[in-house]
Design a protein around this nucleic acid. Structure first.
Length: 725
DNA sequence: AGCACGCCGACT
DNA sequence: GTCGGCGTGCTC
């Protein structure tokens, strides 16, 4: 609904007084269809010569967001060049269902529902797609009500899926954690070390000052950042003010939420995985000022905390803070904006600061605090780079090289635990015909599909489309091969090499629900599992005392991507996963397998040399004029026909050029995007690079709606893009 | 996004 | 002659 304009309506007296941000229903368009909208100007001027329609209904009776969040939404609308209505929709959750049931139906995707998958209707397909998406995000099961709303399907289509055995329902208690439960605040079981105390002292000064300041807390993995947050939060709570704590994703937010429950007073969570009832409950409690802390992923930055005193962003560097759909905002940057609008301090914590943040710290825009050592004098894990090429026995493909294998054996002998990390990309299995080189590709995206043994289906990672495994190659009728070093290959190797060890796999295929996630985490924590094998998921925030060895099966997969942040991401991934090792008495060891051991990102990670890496990377970025020394904007032009897309991209770019000063804005493209076709749409893109923050928006914002309308294709606008594919 | 209007090709 | 394709434009 790309409606940029603001429309005037008559306000019937019986609706009370209108206020900014109020949700309303209005008749819209020739058929007067019912649309929802937000009051933007309660005292708007009446446009002349137009008969006003009356607002039909007011949804809110009290403001759901404060003026700070409303201003924030306006800023997002301008900065990210997104219509204000869409921004407000992202800020304010849709109103809760009327009935606050004690129980609700939740839906699971059935594991072995192979058959019957063909010949299902589009509505049923939509339901399955939603469920599959939820599984990939690890938020399965999904509340039935939410599922039907999101897929736009009727109950009948759903029932049909149940009778085909493709999905399964269960009744679940609506589990709302009452806010006042944790009233008795538990004291910390231990004292802060001098380093932590010094850092906390600095933070407390800013907290006591109570005005805007941004502080980057660079603390190595295991340096006790969370404990520092907790103390700072308590202090601000003691002044009767609330805190927002952002975590990169739902799973981590949930984990942090539980951790805080035992240490702080009234803790609330907010995220899209909650049932409407739960979400409404927390929202309402927060709005009334009953929450001391709100924990959540990026969207929690819009929480209506009435007397905000501090914002904390954990794992500031994480790219999941950037939203992939409109409005495409960066949670960290929006948080900094909110802090400055509401004049409160903000704390950004990480072991591997993003280039943006470290640059801000160096230029003095942010303060910088450091925790260079682990707590309790624990040493950093030792890191060893292993060149896979040298380790490979002739002709035989081994994923776990000689060194890693023997280190694993030794660790297991000592009854210590092991974490193995592999990147999803590059470790997928493809469906392949060796004789004619045919490969199973998604019909809609022209990208190879990935075979999942557990689902007995091939899926497309871009659109979620699924396909059955063909018996024979459709091109030459030859034999089909599953090709690639899938996770299963590693599992097979583990079976062969460590027949007595127990291991668990943790990736989006096996972690279908928070319950399963918790179970694996608990089992591993209790020592029932020796080896934890996982994707990025295992790199983040886990804390197991008995892990002495971490193996990075291949560090290269994120280097090969054509993206100027590849180096930064590789460095972060290695340092973060290495941080899982040696968190208690057993010293940690990390083996990084690579084909390109000379890569500077890997070398710096091996010596825990953040400074050296940042120095080098910033120099590169400065020389090439890339962020953080410039700002980028990216536009993707999409059309179902290739020529149309290309043509539209050309005219769109020409229009952009007319409004941009050529000496200050570099225009790259248009060119075909890295992923040339997704969901049946061909993609071209243009990139703008400009050293002056905000200049691109200033030049384009007045003209963009008009330009977009004049181009017969979909245009996606992405400011400060992280994804350049 | 919907939903109209409007201007060109293949049919009863 | 009309039905219907989808490019274009508007929504207070």
């Amino acid at each position: 609904v790309d409606v940029w304009e603001v429309f005037s309506y008559a306000w019937p007296d019986d609706l009370g007084e209108p206020f900014r941000g109020q949700r309303v229903h209005v008749p819209f368009g020739p058929g007067n269809r019912d649309e929802h909208g937000f009051v933007v100007e309660p005292e708007g001027t009446r446009p002349k010569g137009i008969e006003l329609k009356p607002v039909s209904k007011a949804v809110d009776r009290e403001p759901q967001i404060g003026s700070g969040v409303f201003k924030l939404a306006e800023w997002i609308s301008d900065y990210y060049m997104t219509p204000l209505g869409m921004v407000l929709q992202a800020c304010v959750p849709s109103p809760a269902g009327k009935h606050a049931d004690r129980k609700e139906a939740v839906v699971y995707l059935e594991e072995d529902g192979e058959g019957a998958r063909n010949r299902i209707g589009p509505r049923q397909k939509a339901i399955l797609d939603e469920l599959f998406e939820a599984r990939l995000q690890g938020i399965e099961p999904v509340a039935l009500g939410m599922l039907l709303r999101k897929s736009g399907a009727q109950r009948a289509s759903f029932n049909s899926l149940v009778s085909r055995g493709l999905v399964r329902t269960e009744m679940r208690d609506v589990k709302i954690q009452p806010l006042d439960r944790g009233r008795g605040v538990v004291d910390a079981p231990f004292e802060l070390n001098p380093e932590q105390q010094a850092v906390l002292g600095e933070i407390n000064q800013k907290v006591d000052l109570g005005t805007y300041s941004a502080t980057l807390l660079h603390g190595v993995t295991g340096s006790g950042k969370t404990e520092v947050y907790v103390r700072a939060i308590r202090r601000i709570n003691g002044k009767g003010r609330g805190v927002i704590l952002l975590a990169p994703e739902i799973a981590l937010a949930t984990q942090t939420f539980k951790r805080l429950l035992s240490r702080l007073g009234r803790v609330a969570v907010l995220h899209s995985g909650l049932s409407p009832t739960e979400r409404a409950y927390y929202w309402e409690q927060i709005r009334r000022g009953n929450a001391d802390v709100v924990v959540g992923p990026r969207s929690a930055i819009f929480a209506p905390v009435p007397n905000l005193g501090l914002i904390v962003i954990d794992e500031e560097h994480e790219s999941s803070y950037k939203q992939g759909t409109v409005p495409r905002y960066h949670g960290r940057d929006v948080a900094v904006k909110r802090a400055s609008l509401e004049d409160v301090p903000i704390l950004l914590g990480t072991a591997t600061p993003s280039m943006e943040s470290i640059n801000n710290a160096r230029s003095g825009r942010y303060g910088l605090l450091e925790l260079p050592h682990r707590v309790r004098g624990l040493p950093m894990p030792s890191l060893k780079i292993v060149h896979l090429r040298r380790e490979m026995q002739s002709g035989k493909v081994e994923l776990l090289g000689r060194t890693l294998t023997s280190k694993m054996a030794a660790a297991l002998d000592r009854n210590e635990q092991v974490i193995l990390l592999m990147n999803r990309r590059g470790y997928a299995s493809y469906v392949f015909c060796p004789s004619c080189k045919w490969m199973l590709e998604c019909r809609h995206c022209s990208m190879p599909m990935v075979w999942h043994r557990s689902l007995t289906l091939a899926t497309c990672h871009h659109c979620g489309n699924t396909a059955e495994l063909p018996d024979y190659c459709p091109a030459c009728e030859g034999r089909i091969l599953l090709f690639g070093y899938g996770i299963q290959r590693i599992e097979d190797e583990l079976f062969r090499k460590f027949p007595n060890a127990t291991f668990a796999r943790m990736d989006s295929d096996t972690m279908t629900s928070p319950v399963q996630f918790k179970k694996v985490i608990d089992d591993f924590g209790d020592g029932n599992i020796d080896i934890l094998l996982g994707t990025q998921m295992v790199a983040k925030g886990l804390d197991f005392p008995n892990v002495s060895l971490v193996g990075v099966v291949s560090a290269d997969t994120c280097l090969s991507i054509n993206d100027f942040r590849a180096s930064e991401r590789t460095f972060q991934l290695i340092v973060q996963v290495a941080g899982r090792a040696g968190r208690d008495r057993t010293p940690g060891e990390v083996i990084v397998q690579t084909l390109y051991g000379d890569d500077p990102a890997i070398r710096h990670a091996a010596t825990h040399d953040y400074r050296g890496f940042a120095e080098m990377e910033l120099r590169d970025r400065r020389e090439t004029g890339l962020p953080p020394f410039s700002r980028m904007a990216r536009f993707v032009i999409r059309h179902s026909r290739m020529e149309k897309a290309e043509e539209a991209a050309e005219t769109f770019t020409a229009e952009l050029r007319r409004h941009l000063p050529p000496d200050r804005v570099t225009v790259i493209g248009p060119q075909q995007a890295e992923l040339p076709r997704i969901k049946d749409r061909f993609r071209f893109h243009v990139m703008l690079i400009c050293p002056v923050p905000g200049l691109i928006q200033q030049c384009l914002l007045p003209h963009l709606p008009e330009i977009q309308r004049s181009v017969p294709a979909d245009i996606v606008t992405d400011i400060d893009p992280l994804d350049l594919m």
